[in-house]
Amino acid sequence: MKPLEKYNPAVLFIYFLLLASLVMFAANPVMTMIAFVAMNSAAVVYAGNGLGRAYIFYAVIFVLTSLANPVFSHNGVTVLLVVNDNPITLEAVLYGVMTGFTILSVLLLFRVFSTLMTSDRLLYIFGRAFPKLGLLLSMTLRFVPLFGRQRRKIENTQKTLGLYKNENAIDTIKGKLSILSAMTTWGLENGIVTADSMSARGYGIKRSRTSFSMYRFERSDAFMLCAVLLSCGFIFLGIAIDKLKTDFYPRIELSEVSAYALISYVLYALIAFFPFVAKLAEREAQKKLFKESCDNSVNRERIEKRDSV
């Protein structure tokens, strides 16, 4: 079992795509809760940086969506209270809470997605399908930071040369405009060098261009892909034939507990918790290895000491 980021980007992409659609479309409280817990755990181990601050934002979103539903939807048979002649129903509140959890799960999922799907992984996926687009994307990713840096450099230099003579808005705008024009010239002039460098290395010769990537498709990738496709297919089928259906209106009716539903829940939990478990397993393995090597070296030292004595 290897952590998520070690899989082939295409597998990763399919995994995220299927999981995200399951989280969004399976309107089932059990699955929502599984997804919520699983996505939290995944976010902690994969995208833990700044997660604390993000939770404040998530909490606001959660409260808003949970409140919005009962305010706007008055379906349901269990009336809790009446505000301005509008009934607030238990069903609508619960549905709102579930939507809140769903949205939070999706947000957390995207957080992990954006941390793992770095530019070169996306490039691998799209470069395969559209080689020209792939190269264009790669060059863009190269030149955006380059241009940004150059702009800052020009701005600094021009500042020392007295570009912004008076600190008023017109001078500032004039200054920014001349920097923009200088940037354009710089970009065009130096773009020629880039173009030369490309043609010097055979770009545009009449041979079909290949697209290279450092990622391989290994057996574990194939296994992972099959597992994800099969289990998601099974669950989607369950949703399609109403085996996992939950009705909220007019009253909450959970689907009857069937073998199909139970298997679906287990499969869902497996794929949703996989990233978290895989990461923990890797950490444990490393810890153990490290400890062993420490023990070994300590033992070796001890033996050496004994021998020398």
Partner: peptide, 25 residues
């Protein structure tokens, strides 16, 4: 070429190394 920065075409070191080989298929 002379200027190190402008003759680099792609965003990653490994991709830059592969660029010429990709071109010739």
């Amino acid at each position: 070429f002379q200027r190190p920065d402008m003759q680099i075409v792609t965003d990653k070191v490994w991709h830059e190394l592969a660029f010429g080989l990709e071109n010739i298929g």
